[in-house]
Design a protein around this nucleic acid. Structure first.
Lengths: 229, 229
DNA sequence: GAGTGGTCTAGACCACGCC
DNA sequence: GCGTGGTCTAGACCACTCG
């Protein structure tokens, strides 16, 4: 006997996908299942907890567990460093700095980062290539009030991304995906036509509630983000 | 004393964000931490396991636990039913059927779904509105070999999405996000100009390895997907 | 009030993977 | 070999929430 939590999880999932336990219908209580599987309640609990995290079932104290009516679909995308993303595809990574300056943040950046008027920022524009082809255009703003060392960091050989992971311990972030049209500058850098639709990711990173950096990443034409669930 | 796993997790995360435990450096073993926190090892284990799932730390048997060098950034997007997505924004949901037919799948759809030549599909095009504004254009293909009941389903009043969640027990899916340009038809339906950049989500859903449905969802101009991590 | 999931304990055995 | 995480157990108390 002695079922593992993985076996229990798989068995329950099987009953659901086979339609034995239909959406909305109750699942036996943990103590019952533990007896049925001949295992401890903690083991059943782990299986059920993971199924709940995966969005398959819903759990409530006293009310018990039920198969979700509309399975909560949630896709998880990994957001690796660009360098890794490119090298994992078997291409050679190359980096190029386009522009770098220190100054006051423009209003739209201040709004996104929640900075006060006149806030000083380091602004860096750079490109990431996969083999010879432009892969991603990076437009980054770093809050010098939080990271004064960024004023003198050297971004000529490697991007601000790699510098940041080495200098900022750990952060929270808000990420936003949208479609944008290539303007003249983007078209030139990404080797596409002006007006072409491009996938854009914006990310604002915070540390202890203060904005550290805001970045706008625009990908080459035809780029896709994919995930399974 | 008696720390909960949440407190332990928060404390460890705090030491990492404060820089006490730096990226790449080892974290004390579970048995040590359990003694330090005055709790059982299972409690520490749960805290550490969740930190690993969150991509904060890396764990290996014998080698021990370490703070991740490059924190694995992973964003989780919830993909609710369109109706819910719209109603959660406080807008009124409205649905409109544009086109519906049964026939053989065109080559590009067969390729995406992995169907044999001549496979019969139900093809449905419809629109989802938030208040009066077009919100999402849906282009859906349903494999009739797996779901023959879909041939006669009525999609005039509500979308195939809601019909599917009621008729397919549970599924796996592959999702892909990209940017596309509005063609004449999309522009007319989504009230934008031809050539406008639009966010497009494609999803292929499988059940026991067989493709059930493929859908291409194109959002109104300016739509964003957002997430935190 | 009573049943359910949420969590914790103290102990145990195992599998992996460095040395 | 042996230390580490991975997992399981049998029991316990608690918190939430439905009726």
């Amino acid at each position: 006997m002695t079922a593992t939590y993985r076996e229990i999880k798989a068995d329950i999932l099987g009953r659901i996908t086979r339609g034995e336990w239909k959406p909305g219908s109750p699942i036996p209580a943990e103590r019952e299942l533990a007896e049925a599987y001949g295992s401890a309640r903690a083991t059943v609990n782990r299986a059920m907890r993971e199924l709940a995290e995966d969005g398959i079932i819903e759990r409530k104290r006293k009310a018990g567990s039920r198969v979700r009516l509309a399975p909560l679909r949630q896709a998880r995308f990994d957001i690796p460093l660009v360098r890794r993303e490119i090298e994992d595809q078997g291409a050679a990574y190359r980096y190029a700095l386009v522009q770098s300056e220190v100054g006051r943040a423009p209003d739209w950046v201040r709004a996104r980062m929640g900075l006060p008027a006149g806030a000083k920022v380091r602004h860096v524009v750079c490109l990431h290539f996969a083999d010879a082809a432009p892969y991603q255009h990076e437009d980054r703003w770093i809050n010098l009030a939080v990271l004064p060392q960024a004023r003198d960091a050297d971004f000529s050989a490697s991007g601000p991304n790699e510098w940041l992971v080495a200098h900022v311990p750990f952060t929270e972030a808000e990420i936003s995906i949208s479609a944008t049209a290539a303007d003249a500058g983007l078209a030139a850098h990404l080797a596409c036509a002006p007006g072409d639709p491009l996938l854009q990711i914006e990310r604002c990173t915070r540390w202890n509630g203060r904005a550290v950096t805001f970045v706008r990443l625009v990908h080459h034409r035809g780029h896709r983000m994919t995930a399974r669930y």
